[in-house]
Amino acid sequence: MKLTELPHRTLAIVRGNDRNAALRTVITLAEEGITATEVSLTTADALWVIEQARRELGPDATLGAGTVVTTEDAERAADAGAGFLVTPGVLPDLRNGPAHALPVLMGALTPSEIISAVGCGAHAIKLFPASLGGPGHLTALRAPFPTVPFVPVGGIDAATAPLYLAAGAVAVGVGSPLIGDAANGGDLAALRTRTAQWRTALTEAVAG
C-alpha cells in the first residue's frame, strides 16, 4: 500500500461516537468502492474498530489510524492492525519503535513544517487544515516542494476536491462531507448515496 496511490485518490476519514456504527461505516465504504480508510483514534473504541475492520476486510485492506499524536498511539494502532498512520502535525518520535515501519501521512501546513515532516521520514504530507489556504496554497507549496506528495485534509468536499487534485494533490482526505452521521449511528443508505456521488465526482476530475 502506498499513500501516494490511494484508490479513487481518496482517503475516507471515519470519526464517530458509536463503535459499531463506525465499524459499519468502514465496511460500507469498502463495499461501495472507497477502500482507503483512516479511523481516527478519537472514535469511540477506535482500536476495536480497527481490529474488527481488519478482520472483516483482510490483511491487504488500506486501513489506517488517524489522529496519532504520541508514539504510544502509534504502537497501539499498529498492534490493532493499522497499516498506516496519520498525524495532525509533525511527530518526530515516530522514527522510533516498532511502528516506525508503517507508512506515515504526517500533518504539516507551512514550508518549515513540511521540511521537518520530510526529515522525520513522512511518506506523504497531510496538508492540514487545507481550508486555511485552499488550493492556491497547495499550488504555491508545489513550487519549492515539487516531489513531495501532498494529501490535503480539512474542509474538502466534492466541489473542492477536484481543485486540489488539479493543484497537484496525489489524493484528498474527506471526513464529514462524505461520512455524514453514519459513524454516529446515522443512515447507511444515505452514506451509500454520498459515496456513489463522490466516486463520480472524483472519477470525472481525474479523467478531466
Results as ranks from 00 to 15, higher is better:
residue 2 K to Y: 02
residue 3 L to C: 08
residue 6 L to P: 04
residue 8 H to L: 14
residue 10 T to Q: 09
residue 14 V to R: 04
residue 15 R to P: 01
residue 18 D to S: 10
residue 19 R to M: 01
residue 24 R to F: 00
residue 30 A to V: 12
residue 31 E to K: 14
residue 32 E to A: 10
residue 43 T to R: 05
residue 44 A to H: 13
residue 45 D to M: 01
residue 45 D to C: 01
residue 47 L to C: 05
residue 48 W to I: 03
residue 50 I to P: 10
residue 52 Q to C: 07
residue 52 Q to G: 01
residue 52 Q to H: 12
residue 55 R to G: 11
residue 58 G to R: 09
residue 59 P to H: 08
residue 60 D to T: 12
residue 63 L to P: 06
residue 68 V to Y: 06
residue 70 T to N: 05
residue 70 T to Y: 03
residue 70 T to L: 04
residue 73 D to Y: 08
residue 80 A to L: 12
residue 84 F to G: 02
residue 84 F to V: 07
residue 86 V to I: 14
residue 88 P to G: 10
residue 92 P to K: 05
residue 95 R to S: 14
residue 101 A to C: 03
residue 101 A to Y: 02
residue 102 L to P: 06
residue 105 L to D: 07
residue 108 A to E: 07
residue 111 P to Y: 10
residue 115 I to S: 10
residue 121 G to V: 02
residue 125 I to M: 08
residue 125 I to G: 03
residue 126 K to N: 00
residue 130 A to C: 03
residue 133 G to D: 02
residue 134 G to H: 11
residue 137 H to S: 04
residue 144 P to R: 08
residue 151 V to R: 09
residue 154 G to N: 11
residue 154 G to Y: 07
residue 156 I to A: 08
residue 157 D to Q: 07
residue 157 D to I: 08
residue 158 A to C: 01
residue 160 T to R: 11
residue 162 P to R: 10
residue 165 L to R: 09
residue 167 A to W: 06
residue 169 A to F: 11
residue 173 G to K: 08
residue 177 P to I: 03
residue 178 L to Y: 09
residue 180 G to A: 10
residue 181 D to L: 07
residue 181 D to M: 03
residue 183 A to K: 05
residue 183 A to D: 05
residue 184 N to M: 00
residue 185 G to T: 13
residue 185 G to Y: 12
residue 186 G to I: 02
residue 192 R to T: 01
residue 195 T to V: 06
residue 197 Q to R: 14
residue 197 Q to L: 13
residue 198 W to S: 03
residue 198 W to K: 04
residue 208 G to D: 14
